[in-house]
Write a protein that binds this DNA or RNA. Structure first.
Length: 709
DNA sequence: TGGGAGTGCTTTTTT
DNA sequence: AGCACTCCCA
């Protein structure tokens, strides 16, 4: 036990050994957050304050939950298997499977991933003859998810205008369709679970009494529904231990509410608030930069990171002529670092948007520097894998229209758009699934569809008693999927992925051993939806790591390059347009980027950048101005700025006449350009624009017609 | 049915 | 620029 608590600093120790009380742990970057969380659980169990049975630990990602489980088994001589440690979605899935009857779901209910959800919505719009220009599927999808994440059903959604009224109706249609097919989307897992606990008192009491200690990781990322879910489960006297960092909340755009941290103190009376402010990761200058940045945000819970590691190296800043020039600089520095003995795996290049990786990759490739890009297409989202899974889904649940449509004519078997239209019409009429309606189709197309149904039926019989991996193999072969990719020019990789799917099934069966409700197939399909396959890529051997800043959260490297620090890119234009909240989230993102570095941090920007096929003239990011000059070492050899360096406080509100510095505008005669500076107000306002092709021009706003691009 | 041409979009991302 | 999606013709 003394082992367990050894080497904890005083606030860490205090947090770990808190008596049974609610607690909010404000854990700064690199302050040992995960360690505190796992040690707290281990301490509670090893001092017999609670059994493994009475602990509920929630994370956001599978990676985090796996890490927690692994650390826990290292700390405690217990089997962590039966413990309730998992992601919000994973745990809700577990509850719903256990009580599928009470929530009105088939035992074998399937989980729609975002892609499935979107295609379902598109299909719905088509069937209802709705103009998808007026109701863009993506927007509708977001509308539905946002409502669910607030705990709002279609029946409760308020509509202030006709447009929203229609969207609410479509939301209702979507709900109906999901129920008819027996499928749930990600948000539905949570909402349905929440409603179950709310409605069913004996069940609620059962779980409330069972979980005595509830621990939440990355609390700043919880949305409203998740917060309510936790509150409901804690309603029976359980103690909640929430760990988070409001300064690292970077998922507001998908519904995370930092406000939950504030509400926590209100809703959990007498909650202990403990700050973990000692950083064990970064050198002093890096932390100083991070602190200087983040103090520009308002509405913080307040926290100042410190380290006793010493100031370390200055932060290196570089302003390149172009994105290509920037890439060249980054890669040259990396080569030098590697020559000096730094491991490439300890070097990361971060960027705001994934599209930026292209130039960097190009340069890395040209100079033969091994690299690994994170954040591409994930395994279970590849088309060939989704095809194979769709066949499997159809075996498990013929009513799954999404799966049906995905493979009914893939590989092609003469079932064209026409036949499918007929089929969908009759399914709609019969109020049944496509699979069911297929029997009623007559004529030539009926035959083709009939053949498909017979294929599925015979596959079901043939695979009934096969172990999962063989079942997958059988499907891949007998449906013609494998043959199709064998004949395709570029099909080799896809074939390999299908083989990998068979392996994945074998691994899954080995690892899982006992299979939960509904058998191996359903468990495997659930696994595929809930864990789309970690970012791809194994531990890159000796490769430089490339990823978006979002993807870097939670990671750390000896050397970090933050590239593309330009106004409009980082902070991103779209966020800047969202006002103060937007810019503050961008700043937190910058804070996350900076705090990834242990020893050396590079910040770079470019004066011109190819974006959307056009050269854009850029102004250095306002975030660069927020870092004290004395921390910076400017590496530019020659100073010949195309654009005068950004001076004067940037403000989120428009500068003059609705135009801002850094904004791209179009002029009738001079074409596209970037606003470099402004002067005067009202009728006297003038802006200086750097036109691509026509150079720098001063224009009076009263006369020149500039339209934002 | 399937491929080629034309069109439009493009921040971040987990589950 | 690059990709996904649609449309139209062989």
């Amino acid at each position: 036990m003394s082992d367990l608590l050894a080497n904890l600093n005083s606030p860490q120790l205090q947090a770990v050994t808190l008596p049974p009380v609610h607690a909010l742990i404000l854990a700064g970057a690199g302050s040992g957050k995960t360690r505190v969380l796992t040690t707290r659980i281990a301490w509670l169990i090893s001092t017999s304050q609670v059994g493994p049975h009475g602990v509920l630990a929630v994370t956001f990602t599978n990676k985090a939950s796996k890490e927690m489980t692994a650390r826990l088994s290292a700390l405690l001589p217990i089997n962590t298997r039966g413990m309730w440690i998992g992601t919000f979605h994973g745990l809700c899935n577990r509850l719903l499977r256990a009580h599928y009857r009470e929530v009105g779901l088939p035992q074998t209910f399937q989980i729609l991933d975002s892609g499935d959800q979107l295609s379902m919505i598109k299909r719905l719009l088509k069937n209802l003859n709705i103009d998808d220009e007026k109701f863009p599927p993506r927007e509708l999808c977001h509308f539905i998810n946002a409502n669910k994440e607030q705990g709002i059903r279609a029946a409760q959604a308020e509509a202030y205008d006709n447009y929203t009224q229609k969207r609410v109706e479509l939301y209702a249609e979507y709900e109906t369709q999901c129920n008819r097919e027996g499928v749930v989307d990600f948000a539905e897992l949570l909402l349905r679970c929440y409603e179950l606990l709310q409605r069913n008192e004996p069940l609620r009491q059962h779980y409330q009494e069972r979980f005595r200690y509830i621990l939440v990781d990355e609390f700043q990322d919880t949305n409203r529904l998740q917060y309510s879910w936790l509150k409901l489960l804690a309603g029976g006297g359980a103690k909640v231990f929430a760990v988070g960092d409001d300064d690292q909340s970077i998922y507001g755009f998908r519904g995370a509410e930092v406000g939950n941290m504030r509400d926590f103190e209100r809703d959990y009376a007498g909650a202990n608030v403990i700050r973990l402010e000692q950083n064990y990761r970064s050198h002093g200058n890096i932390l100083a930069a991070a602190n200087a940045l983040i103090k520009n945000n308002r509405e913080r819970l307040g926290k100042n990171l410190w380290t006793d590691a010493g100031a370390g190296e200055p932060i290196r800043a570089f302003e390149a002529y172009s994105d290509i020039d920037e890439a060249r600089f980054v890669v040259d520095e990396i080569r030098e670092l590697v020559r000096e003995g730094v491991s490439p795996t300890q070097i990361a290049i971060l960027y705001r948007s994934n599209a930026q990786s292209r130039v960097l990759e190009h340069e890395l490739f040209a100079k033969s520097v091994p690299y690994k890009v994170y954040g591409g297409l994930r395994f279970f989202e590849r088309q060939e894998i989704k095809h194979a899974l769709a066949y499997l889904r159809l075996l498990g649940n013929p009513d799954d229209d999404t799966a049906f449509l995905r493979v009914v004519n893939f590989p092609t078997r003469g079932i064209g758009a026409r036949s499918l239209e007929n089929l969908q019409a009759s399914a709609h009429q019969m109020n049944s699934s496509l699979y069911n309606a297929a029997a009623s189709l007559t004529g030539k197309s009926g035959q083709a569809v009939g053949a498909f149904i017979r294929l599925i039926e015979s596959l079901r019989q043939e695979t009934e008693n096969l172990p999962l991996p063989e079942m997958v193999e059988h499907i891949v072969e007998k449906t013609g999927l494998a043959q199709h990719y064998r004949l395709e020019k570029e099909g080799q990789e896809r074939l390999e992925n299908l083989d990998e799917l068979i392996n994945a099934a074998a691994t899954f069966v080995d690892a899982e051993g006992a299979i939960g409700e509904g058998g191996a197939l359903v468990s495997f399909l659930t696994h595929a939806s809930l864990e789309a396959g970690e970012h791809q890529a194994g531990e890159g051997d000796e490769a430089v790591q490339l990823m978006s800043v979002h993807a870097a959260k939670g990671l750390e490297f000896d050397v970090v390059f933050v590239s593309g620090l330009e106004q409009g890119l980082f902070p991103h234009e779209n966020s800047v347009n969202q006002g103060r909240d937007g810019i503050e989230e961008e700043r937190r993102l910058m804070y996350v980027a900076v705090t990834r570095a242990r020893q050396r941090l590079y910040l770079s920007c470019a004066q011109t950048r190819m974006l959307h096929g056009q050269t854009r003239y850029c102004v250095p990011s306002s975030f660069l101005d927020e870092i004290p000059l004395e921390l910076l070492l400017k590496l530019n050899k020659k100073a010949a700025p195309l654009v005068t360096s950004f001076a004067g406080g940037y403000s989120a509100e428009p500068a003059v006449g609705g135009l801002r510095i850094g904004q791209t505008v179009e002029h009738g005669k001079f074409g596209i350009g970037v606003i470099v500076s402004t002067e005067g107000r009202g009728a006297d306002a003038r802006v200086q624009v750097n036109f691509s092709g026509n150079g720098m021009k001063w224009l009076a706003l009263e006369y020149a017609k500039l339209t934002p691009v």
